[in-house]
C-alpha cells in the first residue's frame, strides 16, 4: 500500500472518515505519521475552541476578581483557585463522573459524557481560570499614568475600559497568554488519556501514538512523531500570537516592543 493510499484511508480517521479498521500489522512509518497527524485534528479542535471561548470568560473573571462587588469577587477568586489549584487530570476525572451522574437528570446532558463536548467544557473552564489570573495580573499592572490620561480626556466607565484599560491589559498579558495557549494545546493530550473514553477508536494524537506504541512495543517511534507534530503546532501558535502581539504594540517604537516582550514573558 502506497503512502498516498494510507493518507487517503486514514487522514481523517480520527473524525470517523476513511477506513474503519486501524492497521493491525506491518506498521509503516507512513501509517504512524498519518494517523497521529489525523489525531492532531482533535488537539487543534479542543485547543482552538477552548481558547476562543476561554478568552471571554477570562476577561470577565479578571474583572470580577478586581471588582469591588464582594459576590462577584468571591465567585471569580474561587473559580480561579479551584481550576488553577488542582491538576487537570483530576478535573477530567471529576467532570466525567459529574456528567455521568447528570445524565439521568435530563437528556440535555447526554452529549457531555463524550469527549467532544465534555472535555471541551473542562478545558474551557481550565484555560479561562489560568488566563483570568494572567489578565488579572496584567490589569493590576496597567500603568497609573494611562488611567490618569484617560481621566484627563474625560473618559470613564465602558469607553475607558474598551479604549484604554482593556487594550493595555491585553498588551501586558500577551506574552504570558501565549505561554498559556501553548500549555493548553499540550493539555489537550490528556483528554483521551484520562477520563474520557475513545469512541470507535477516534482519538487524539496521543491516543494513536499510544496505539502504535502498544502494537509495535516500541515507544521510540510514535512518541517522537507526536513530539514533532507538537513542536510544529507550538511554532504556529508562537507565530500567530507573535503577529497579534505586534499588532497590539504597533504604536510603540520597535525597541520598546522588544523590551516589553522579554520582560513580561515571566508572568506564567
Amino acid at each position: 500500500m502506497s503512502c498516498w493510499q494510507t493518507i487517503t484511508d486514514y487522514g481523517l480517521r480520527s473524525i470517523g472518515i476513511g477506513e474503519r479498521l486501524l492497521p493491525r500489522d506491518d506498521f509503516t512509518i507512513c501509517q504512524q505519521f498519518t494517523l497521529i497527524g489525523s489525531g492532531m485534528l482533535w488537539n487543534v479542535y479542543f485547543g482552538v475552541l477552548a481558547l476562543a471561548a476561554g478568552f471571554f470568560l477570562a476577561t470577565a473573571l479578571a474583572l470580577g476578581k478586581a471588582s469591588r462587588n464582594v459576590v462577584l469577587r468571591k465567585i471569580s477568586v474561587w473559580f480561579i483557585f479551584i481550576f488553577r489549584g488542582s491538576p487537570l487530570f483530576i478535573q477530567f476525572f471529576f467532570a466525567y463522573f459529574l456528567f455521568l451522574s447528570l445524565k439521568p437528570v435530563s437528556p440535555i446532558f447526554d452529549p457531555f459524557t463524550s469527549a467532544w463536548l465534555g472535555a471541551l467544557v473542562v478545558l474551557f473552564f481550565n484555560t479561562a481560570a489560568y488566563s483570568g489570573e494572567i489578565f488579572y495580573g496584567a490589569l493590576m499592572s496597567v500603568p497609573r499614568g494611562d488611567m490618569e490620561a484617560a481621566d484627563a480626556y474625560g473618559m470613564s466607565g465602558w469607553p475607558r475600559f474598551r479604549r484604554i484599560t482593556w487594550p493595555t491589559m491585553l498588551r501586558l498579558a500577551w506574552p504570558a497568554y501565549t505561554n498559556e495557549a501553548i500549555f493548553l494545546f499540550h493539555a489537550t493530550t490528556l483528554v483521551f488519556f484520562s477520563g474520557f473514553p475513545a469512541w470507535q477508536q477516534r482519538g487524539d494524537a496521543l491516543y494513536y501514538a499510544n496505539y502504535f506504541a502498544d502494537k509495535t512495543f516500541n515507544p521510540f517511534i510514535p512518541y517522537p512523531i507526536l513530539a514533532l507534530y507538537f513542536i510544529l503546532l507550538t511554532l504556529c501558535i508562537i507565530a500567530i500570537f507573535g503577529a497579534v502581539n505586534r499588532r497590539l504594540n504597533r504604536h510603540l517604537p520597535t525597541g520598546a516592543v522588544a523590551r516589553l516582550r522579554v520582560k513580561l514573558n515571566l508572568l506564567r
Binding site: P197, N210, K215
Partner: peptide
C-alpha cells in the same frame, strides 16, 4: 481495555462500537 486482544476483537465486529478504557 485499551490494547487488549478483546479491544482488537471488537473493532472487527460488524456494527459494534468500541469504547476503550485504560
Amino acid at each position: 481495555q485499551t490494547g487488549t486482544i478483546q479491544a482488537a476483537h471488537v473493532t472487527g465486529m460488524d456494527g459494534a462500537t468500541l469504547l476503550e478504557y485504560p
